[in-house]
Design a protein around this nucleic acid. Structure first.
Lengths: 140, 140
DNA sequence: CTACATCCTCTAGCGACTAGAGGTGCAAGA
DNA sequence: TCTTGCACCTCTAGTCGCTAGAGGATGTAG
């Protein structure tokens, strides 16, 4: 097996080089073996792990949640109830966030549409910001 | 006019006490006058400004954008084109974010639904994370 | 052999706060 | 008047998940 450098690992996993080192530093990735010249030498399994982490990060999971998911992956005989719970919690968060962003979107649209493109004292953007009471969607 | 303490200002504006001090420290809010005992004494205008900032933050505007919006508010004879542009840019960001969260939501739902509530080696949550190729929505 | 890309470690910085230490001011009850 | 106890003060450091840069070593292609 030929050695995989950190640059190669980064390219294959889609995680940036400094981020790979960062993940190692926080113990999310085991410290790989080193070459004679002290350069990291990764295994294919490390690439999969990095890809796993990257995918989970893209899905918005926090590092600590990923840590748990990884220990679950490492021991496939465990119950997947924790993984399920983590994913469900994340789903609830995402749904919440979408709802809140939809409300923001509506408010921003009102602001932008109301802008007469004139001077600030007739501008709805500034006015709405100054007075929350004008919001169509008060819950945010 | 009676003095408004920082606690009172915080309660009225909905901004937390340390955050008020933080906004002062970064120059978003002018340093208020002080009492004999060196305690901050706010004016009603400060409360409005804090409420403005809070509302803008809730809408996801960055501090630097808010700084610009505040200078516009301070000089109502300026053109509101900048305010308009800032709000529009924010709207585009929000729309983008909503789209991406919708894709995440779909993927998380697939994961959670596919979970057989058994052991990890049959768990779709772990499996999908490990292999991005299984995503229904590849663009995220 | 010499460029030059890539690697190494280390520290500091980002945004927008938040937490805590260690101390002072102030209003109200005993 | 004293004391209790909360609210205030400044300052530093920590949060999250990286990212940037300094200053140097290694590895590879021509």
């Amino acid at each position: 097996m030929k050695k995989i450098t950190i640059g190669e690992a980064a390219r294959r996993s889609g995680v940036k080089v400094p981020t790979v080192r960062y993940y190692e530093s926080i113990g999310l990735l085991a410290a790989p073996s080193r070459s004679e010249g002290n350069q990291r030498s990764f295994e294919p399994a490390d690439i999969s792990r990095l890809a796993f982490i990257r995918h989970a990060r893209e899905l918005g999971f926090e590092i600590e949640a990923i840590r748990t998911l990884l220990t679950l992956q490492d021991d496939p005989h465990q119950s997947c109830a924790s993984a399920d719970a983590i994913a469900k919690a994340r789903l609830v968060e995402v749904e919440q966030r979408i709802r809140s962003l939809m409300a923001l979107k509506a408010e921003l649209e009102t602001m932008v549409e109301g802008c007469g493109h004139g001077r600030v004292d007739q501008c709805r953007v500034i006015e709405v910001l100054a007075d929350h009471g004008q919001c169509t969607h008060t819950r945010h």
